[in-house]
């Protein structure tokens, strides 16, 4: 059931920020609504006390994908469907497109937003690992100031971010990666469609003459929140891009995740499988020409 709440749909960001500053504790931004409305239905603690929903979808500028020479910006109301259909993203950020295609169903992708996926910060958020390897940044606006922080810093712990009550995420900024990067996104679910991630991985690899010049790795669903694995990335630097390195890396991945999460109910399955699929993903990306 939907709580007794009011609904406003301001036409400008300024008006939105004003409403937020006036209703700090009780107001919540509504974008796609695909996390909030199910949350209402199960009477989730996270959404129970909302008294005002501020729908930001009437603010035109937030609905745009903007391409610049060195970067692309995803407005706060850009849906996963927009990402799936965007030639810009297909060209520069294929991992994000691939992850977007695995989010929920068509109906969900038509509403759910990439920014919402980050703000909700579920451990299994599908778009987070690709955004992390692309070094995405988050632009946050309040009445008084604008700040830009890295996505990794933005994500604090499950279902919690650096966003304050009087702030709005206006966009995600992603620098265009070096075209020498190859990469892939991997998702394991229990079902072949509309599945929650059990494991997700994003990988970008740049080689120079068979040597790993740069490797970027991010995981989802196996760590408490989506995370870059810098230790592994450092380990890989300047190593030979071959099976033996990839095995080492995968073992290290297993150890690292075990260290982060400790033993959990799912570890017996997830840890060995994570190492295997990570290894295979590395092999697959390495073979790409």
């Amino acid at each position: 059931m939907i709580p007794k709440l009011n609904y406003v749909a301001p036409l400008s960001l300024k008006r939105t920020l004003k409403i937020l500053s006036e209703n700090k504790k009780k107001a919540k931004i509504l974008a796609g609504g695909t996390d909030i409305l199910p949350g209402f239905h199960i009477n989730s603690k996270r959404f129970r006390d909302i008294e005002l929903l501020v729908d930001i979808k009437k603010i035109g500028e937030l609905k745009l994908i903007k391409e610049f020479k060195d970067r692309v910006e995803i407005g706060a109301c850009v849906t996963f469907s927009q990402i799936c259909e965007s030639d810009t993203f297909k060209k520069f950020f294929p991992l994000l497109v691939k992850s977007a295609e695995t989010v929920g169903s068509v109906q969900i992708r038509n509403r759910a937003t990439v920014v919402g996926n980050c703000v909700n910060n579920a451990p299994c958020a599908d778009s987070v690992p690709p955004l992390l390897v692309y070094d995405a940044k988050i632009e946050i606006q309040s009445l008084k100031r604008k700040r830009v922080i890295s996505l990794q810093k933005f994500l604090i712990k499950p279902y919690s971010t650096a966003l304050k009550k009087n702030e709005v995420v206006t966009k995600i900024i992603i620098p265009k990666p070096d075209p020498d990067f190859k990469g892939d996104f991997y998702k394991l679910g229990r079902r072949r469609a509309v599945a929650i991630s059990r494991i997700s991985l994003a990988l970008l690899l740049k080689k120079k003459a068979g040597i790993i010049d740069e490797l970027r790795i991010a995981s989802g669903a196996v760590t408490p929140i989506g995370a870059r694995l810098h230790e592994l990335e450092k380990f890989a630097k300047d190593k030979k891009a071959d099976s033996s390195t990839f095995k080492e890396l995968s073992i290290l991945m297993g150890k690292k995740v075990l260290q982060i999460t400790g033993l959990r109910w799912s570890s017996e399955y997830k840890l060995p499988v994570l190492q295997q699929v990570f290894y295979q993903l590395l092999e697959k990306v390495n073979e790409e020409e």
Binding site: Y7, L30, G33, P38, V106, Q107, I108, N110, R111
Partner: peptide, 8 residues
């Protein structure tokens, strides 16, 4: 196509 249960 959208889910009308997820829209206000």
């Amino acid at each position: 196509a959208v889910n009308s249960c997820l829209m206000l």
